[in-house]
Every structure is written in C-alpha cells, then in structure tokens.
Write a protein that binds this DNA or RNA. Structure first.
Lengths: 227, 227
DNA sequence: GCGCGGATAATTGGATACAATAATACTATT
DNA sequence: AATAGTATTATTGTATCCAATTATCCGCGC
C-alpha cells in the first residue's frame, strides 16, 4: 500500500489550450456532457458505451472512463452490469439540489463582497443586460443566466466552491430547461437579478447572503413539481 | 480442452470481514479509500494502478474505474499520463472545504429540526457520550465524531445533502487527522457538541443553523495552517 | 389472451496486449 | 564538471478479446 512520496506534478491548468487534439477520454466526456447540457440526452436515457465509442471512432474503454467521471459529477448514473443513464433526479432530489446551491451561492456571494469594486458592479449590470437581451432565446438565456451567477460566485475567489456550484447547476440543467420552457416569459427583464445587484451594492454581507439564498429558492416548488 | 476458469484470487487476500464477493471495482475503491481514510496513504502520495491491482489480484482496469470515481469524490487527483495521487489540498482549499461543509451542515441541521423528537434527542446524547469515551483514541474518536455529525445531517432526510457533506468530510479527513494529532486534548469532553445539542433542543432554526455553522468554522485557521 | 420458462441476443465487466507518454539514467560534448 | 541530448525504463492510455450478466424474444401451457 505504501508508495514512495513524490512531488505531485504541477497542476496543469492550461493543458486544454495547448492540446489541440483531445484525448479519447476527453472527446467522450465532452460529447456526452454536451448532449446532456443541450437537452438532446434527457434524464433517464441510456448512454451505451458502444454507441458513443462508435460515434467518435474510438473504443469503449475511454468512454467508460468518461462515464465514470460524469458519474462523479452527478451527470449520469451507472448501474452495475446495466450501463449508464443520464442522471434522473426525483422531485425531492431537485429540491435538495436547489437548497444546496442556494446556501453555497449565498456563501459565495457573501465572500465575494470583499473583492467587489466599481468595475465589478459595472460588469454585473453588463451581464444582466446581456441576459435581458436574450430573453426570447431560451438556450442563450440559460447560458447568460449562468454567466451572471458564475461571475458573482467567481468573485469569491473560491475555486472549489465555484466548481461545486457549477456542478450542481449542471445537474439541475435539464429541470431548469423544462421549467423555463413552460414559462410564458423568462423573467420580468432584470427584475429578480437587479435585486441581487442592489444587495451587493449595499455591501451588507447578511443582506447579500439572504438575498441570493432567497433568489435561488424562489421557485423551487414549481421546478421540482415538473419531475 | 476446457478453458481455465476465471482465476478466483488464489491468495486469500486478508480482506475486510466476510464480504460477499465484491466486484473488482468495489474492492479497489474500498481498498484505496480505506488507505486514505486510515492515513496510510497521505496527500500527495502516488497510487499506481499496477500496485493496487497486484495487491488485490485483479487487473488494472477496475482499478482505473475506481480511481476515476475517487477523483469525482475529490479523494484523488488524476494527472493525464501521470497517474493518480492522493488529493492534496492547499491552505486555501482546506478553508473553502470547511466553509462549504459549514453551510451545508448548517442547512442540514436546520432541516433536521422537523424530524427531531425525544428519541432523537436521546440518541444525540448517546452519540456524544460515545465520542467522549473515545477521547484518548484518535482514530476511534474521529469515527465517533463523524457519527455525531452524520446523524444530525441524516435527520434532514436529504440523501444528496448527506452524501455531499460526507464527501467533503472525507476530503478533509487527512487534515483533520493532522490537526487533532497535534492537539493535546481532543476536546473538553462534550463541550462543543453539547452546544449543538442545546441549540437543537431550542427548536429555533436560525439558532441551530448559526450554531452548527459556527461550530464547523471554529478552528478553520488552525487546521488550514497545517498545510 | 396472458403469464411463464428457456433459449438467444445485446451489453457490460474484466483481462491481456500493445502503444504512447513521461520519468529516469546515461553518454557525449563542451 | 556541468549540461544537453539520447536511450532506457516505468507507467499510463487505448484497443481487442472473452466472460458474465442482463434484456429480449419466442414458444408453450393454462
């Protein structure tokens, strides 16, 4: 069990950029994830390693690796001897995920306050406007919406927290899509998110945390009821 | 001629307890995780798939699967073409993890209130006592400590939340071990945790949430400074 | 028509083999 | 002696093959 300790290699954060040809595992990972995020692969659908392998012209082995990683991300569920399916979250699961996201993003927002100046406030308004402009284009709007929240969380300078919230958001993606697709209008332009901007502008950590938390929990029931 | 049967591990690997033939992936997963939790495998140590496979009498393939899952759990880090190492978290990382655990467990505690009656209160006291009795046995105390917190979180009836907090606790395990090992005494028996019990007894959600959160953040700096 | 077995097909799990990559050791050259 | 470049070794990544499990289909009996 014991292994010689050796200095861990430097964290390669930029390997994506220099690698033009993605490795088979990465191809498979991106391919499947894209399918889930885009909505092509709906919750419950099977993801046979064979068909993915064939589609990408690789063997099943890297696909399996990719599926394991996606399982860790909560994007797919792997049943023993029965393969992988796009993760399906129940009514209660969705509630839990939203609750978790709420407290985590609220925490992120609170911690972000320390790093917010005029430039950042401007950026918030900018992001809100971009969101509003995409109000009639659902896929685009979802992206912009995520941009807004991710930016706020990113200002906390907490990469692990960021990663966590992104992960949960990814898990919820299919259900948010469904929810927004059924709404007549996505949001009275900017209204909800302006409240967050105002809270941030106030500079009060408790207010910020509470506002973001409430925002995330806003229509938890409506979303969960779709499942 | 008849093909030789799949070689059942001829060597009776002194394996944990009587288990009903865990699949190779599960064996590898448990084996590595156990090594990390027990402290045998310290952060930064390499975990070559070959040696694990050999130790368990299986091939490298299921070990790879296990490592991928552990990567998703945050227990190991996999560098492309350079294998897996036990996940190493920096000073800042540890702070983030503790912060996340704080808000998530605080949320869990708040939600648990709805499911707490006399029987549960008794169980809390029971668990605290077990913890106190193990005060001179570090590994055991850590287990009891986790038992206490996991029980509280479990009462929220939020499996995903539970899983998340357990995951984070696992990531932090090596650093907590280090922290507690350096402490003269683990805790004025029951003192800190009695405060949580009292808060729960009060039945006030805000108090509970705040208390649990404060408890988790109690010595974040001391722990993080060890890295 | 409906359920129940048993054969058959489809799909995953695991092992071996080989290729690719990174780490290490070595040699030659300055 | 230091270093750069090369050869060697160790380890990981991928492909292919076979076994095992699960799902499907079909005939049979009620």
């Amino acid at each position: 069990m014991t292994q010689a300790k050796r200095a861990a290699p430097a964290r390669a954060t930029a390997w994506v950029l220099e690698n033009k040809t993605l490795s088979p595992v990465e191809q498979a990972y991106n391919y499947i994830l894209q399918g889930i995020l885009s909505g092509e692969l709906a919750p419950g659908m099977r993801v046979p390693s064979e068909s993915v392998a064939e589609a990408l012209g690789i063997s099943r082995m890297p696909v399996r690796d990719a599926l394991r990683r996606l399982e860790g991300d909560g994007a797919v569920t792997i049943y023993a001897n029965r393969g992988a399916t796009v993760a399906e979250y129940s009514h209660d699961d969705v509630i839990q995920l939203i609750e978790m996201r709420a407290v985590l993003e609220a925490l992120g927002a609170r911690l972000a306050l320390a790093h917010i100046g005029d430039a950042e406030m401007e950026e918030f308004v900018h992001l809100r406007e971009r969101m509003d402009r995409a109000v009639n284009d659902l896929p685009n709007w979802i992206t912009r919406h995520d941009d807004f929240h991710n930016y706020l969380t990113s200002l906390s300078r907490r990469p692990l927290l960021m990663r966590q919230t992104e992960r949960i958001r990814m898990m919820l993606r299919p259900y948010f899509r469904r929810h927004h697709a059924e709404q007549q209008e996505l949001e009275i332009p900017g209204h909800e998110h302006q409240k967050i901007i105002d809270a941030v502008a106030s500079g009060n950590p408790d207010v910020v945390e509470q506002t973001v938390r409430a925002h995330a929990l806003a229509n938890v029931e409506k979303i969960a009821n779709l499942t």
